[in-house]
Write a protein that binds this DNA or RNA. Structure first.
Length: 434
DNA sequence: TCTGGGGTCCTAGGACCC
DNA sequence: TCTGGGGTCCTAGGACCC
């Protein structure tokens, strides 16, 4: 925690709905709800006019419709939100080199890097108001709420205190008095599950939390969370504002209005999502080694399966093949409401740049067969060979094996899929490394 | 017909290595 | 033959955020 109120948090008010009202004057002053409009959609943002009726973010659209039937229900226009967000972030970056966006509508700004004459409360407050005015100007009238304090935590809590369209500075030295009467739920990281655990332990306010020993907190909430909350309860927070945080994963998922039961359809959907993930990886110059699928069953139980490849990929077809082989291990006979694919373990180098070749898009063909000497192959572990020479097994599923003809030390070659009875492909011993 | 989509971080167990 | 600790990587699941 700093000795000055030099961390600023900006939160744009009802951002998606505000952009819609800005761009369509007939929506101004009326309840606007942005989110999924399908049978299983949820509310992303409700305008303040809709919040009067009890509509909240994350509520099902069905319930929102029941509470506020006369609202305008809109699906998101993310291009417009991204563009507007970009203008806001540009204003912030012009104010300080150290800006940490948290999402399209939120960011931290380090005022210690802003070149202000001093960091007195009156000075930072005036600067915050100036930023709010600039945000309104570049966005065509959008409002934002600003909190300023001696840490990220305090700035974030402060931005909630005068919302919408307000500004709060928490004077250094007054943080703990401010926090004590507040509910534990205001602490970022205290969600429904943690709240319930604390409630059962008789802990409701931050003052209650302050009375708990560190050992007890760790016993209650685990190592990381326990130590973290122990400190936050005392307003101890020295997390720096970090610009340019690195992407850790890229994913695509979808919830379907009716549960899926057809495996071929599921495989096709996974392939489409994999293509989308591959496009986004390439757009950002990323590739990753771990492919994960996510499957939510009809009863909302959520499963994930992952496979880590010997070398990173940004190829949609390759991601899709691994995804489909992972799906093969799961029993989906009861119906699937959500399917998703993600890639993590990202490297920021691009295979194509290193090796000068793009993997050719392969047509979907009948799978040739793999010799029947084995029933299963381990991705990343087993090596087989066909006329191309040796190749790593990339994915293996029910009767299907995907082979990429490369090793950790050689450039990527083509990827091929075989069924387990193919005489064209024979298992080979794993070469000794080094 | 309760319960999105994009992420981040943490935990816990097993494999494997020294 | 038995015991053992530490570190890293991988997998699966869960909590949380906007």
């Amino acid at each position: 925690m700093r000795s000055t109120a030099s961390v600023l948090h900006l939160d744009l008010d009802a951002f998606f709905a505000a952009v819609e009202q800005r761009d369509k004057p007939s929506l101004r002053g009326k309840p606007v709800i942005v989110g999924g409009v399908g049978g299983r959609g949820v509310v992303a943002t409700a305008s303040y006019e809709a919040r009067v009726f009890g509509v909240r973010s994350a509520m099902s659209t069905r319930e929102a419709r029941a509470r506020c039937p006369h609202a305008a229900f809109l699906t998101g226009r993310f291009h417009a939100y991204r563009e507007t967000s970009g203008k806001v972030m540009a204003v912030l970056r012009a104010a300080s080199p150290l800006v940490e966006p948290l999402s399209l509508d939120e960011a931290f700004v380090d005022l210690a890097q802003a070149g202000l004459p001093d960091l007195e409360v009156a000075t930072v407050a005036a600067y915050g108001e100036e930023l709010r005015a600039q945000v309104a100007e570049v966005t065509g009238g959008l409002t934002g709420s600003v909190g300023i304090g001696s840490s990220k935590f305090i700035a974030k809590v402060a931005s909630e205190l005068d919302k919408p369209d307000g500004l709060t500075v928490v004077a250094p030295g007054t943080e703990r008095d401010l926090l004590r009467p507040m509910k534990v739920g205001v602490i970022p990281g205290v969600g429904p599950a943690t709240n319930e655990r604390l409630r059962r332990a008789g802990i409701h306010t931050i003052a209650d939390l302050e009375a708990v020993t560190e050992d007890e907190m760790v016993r209650l909430l685990g190592n990381a969370h326990g130590h973290g909350l122990f400190r936050l309860a005392r307003a101890q927070d020295d997390r720096p504002v970090v610009a340019d945080r690195e992407t850790k994963s890229v994913s695509s998922e979808g919830t379907y209005d009716t549960d899926l039961t057809d495996r071929k359809l599921m495989e096709g959907l996974l392939a489409r999502q994999a293509t989308h993930v591959g496009e986004r990886l390439r757009k950002h110059g990323l590739s990753g080694r771990t492919v994960t699928i996510k499957v939510r069953l009809h009863d909302f139980t959520t499963l994930s399966r992952s496979s880590t490849l010997p070398s990173p990929t940004d190829s949609g077809p390759a991601i899709g093949r691994v995804a489909r082989s992972l799906l093969a291990d799961l029993d989906t006979s009861g119906g699937v409401r959500l399917l998703g694919v993600g890639v993590s373990g990202l490297a920021d180098w691009i295979q194509e740049d290193l090796f000068g070749e793009t993997e050719p898009e392969e047509p979907e063909v009948e799978l040739p067969a793999l010799p029947s000497t084995r029933r299963s192959y381990s991705p990343g572990m087993d090596v087989v060979h066909d006329e191309m020479g040796p190749g790593w097994v990339w994915g293996s599923g029910k009767g299907v094996v995907t082979v990429r003809f490369e090793t950790a030390r050689t450039p990527p070659g083509p990827v091929r899929s075989y069924s387990v009875d193919d005489p064209a492909l024979a298992p080979a011993p794993v070469p000794t490394e080094g």
